[in-house]
Simulated assay, not measured.
Amino acid sequence: MIQPERSLGEQAIDKVVEIAISSQLDESESLSVNVETQPMQLAQGEVDSVTIDGEGLVLKQDLRVAQLQVKVNDISVNPLSAMFGKIELNGPAMGAARAVLTESDINRAFNSAYISQKLRELKVKRDGKTLTIDIQSVQCQLLSSGKIALDAQVLVRETDSQERIYFTAKPQIDAGGCAVSLQDVEYPENQEFSPDLTVALAAKASEVLDLRNFELEGMSLQIQQLNVEAGLLTLNALAKVVKFPT
């Protein structure tokens, strides 16, 4: 079926929002914005939907997401601003989002300056003593079993010694729906690594997998469902938009 030609108003808003979102990114492989409305609706301040579809998006903290799709519906806007190609919301707009991270994306995040600084000078308790540790390197694997494996090298400052942590865990949505926490930790057969260091690493992994790291200006995401398969982590979320980027 032939798609009806989109109005100049729709196209203008598409481009304005696309440019505004691009300004928040260090780079993107592709990014498109699609506004669905009719001229009469727009004049009355009504927009059917706005869809944002991006691939290979790199945010300011050097965090990368392979795919990000956001669609919000039934949007009430300032009609005067809309006629000039801007979306000013009269109230929050609700919709859905889908984010896909590859194994490479997650490992890139662990090695980014933004996350690396969070992996230094961590305090852990061991045998009644407080130790200061630096997590020096982390390798993450997304397994076909639906689990996540983490392999890390840790420096214990007090003893100037290096220790290794390796475990698999089941990812779960945290209570607030903002992040993914790691539960049901398992070690390789006949091996058990330091539980104190394991807890510290699992906590930091949850910070890396915090969806708030990937939110755009004026947007909040709440994870509804997650799926891990070999090499890919997919997060489906509720999206709330209080303003579109300017």
Rank of each mutant, 00 (worst) to 15 (best):
M1Q: 06
I2F: 09
I2A: 13
V17Y: 00
A20Y: 07
S22V: 03
D26G: 12
S28V: 09
S32I: 08
M40H: 07
A43M: 12
E55C: 07
V65F: 07
V65A: 15
V72K: 06
M83V: 03
F84W: 11
A97F: 01
N107H: 04
R108A: 14
A109T: 10
F110R: 08
F110V: 08
F110W: 13
A113W: 01
S116E: 12
E121D: 15
L122N: 05
L122T: 04
L122V: 10
K129S: 05
T130S: 15
L131G: 01
I135C: 01
I135A: 02
L142N: 07
S144W: 00
G146Y: 02
K147F: 00
K147D: 10
K147G: 00
I148Q: 13
L150F: 05
V154N: 06
S161G: 07
Q162Y: 13
R164N: 12
I165N: 10
F167P: 06
Q172S: 01
I173S: 09
S181T: 11
S181P: 00
L182N: 08
E189R: 08
S194I: 08
L197K: 12
A203P: 01
A203H: 06
K204P: 03
S206T: 15
D210C: 10
L211C: 13
L211W: 09
N213Y: 00
I223F: 02
Q224E: 15
Q225Y: 04
V241Q: 05
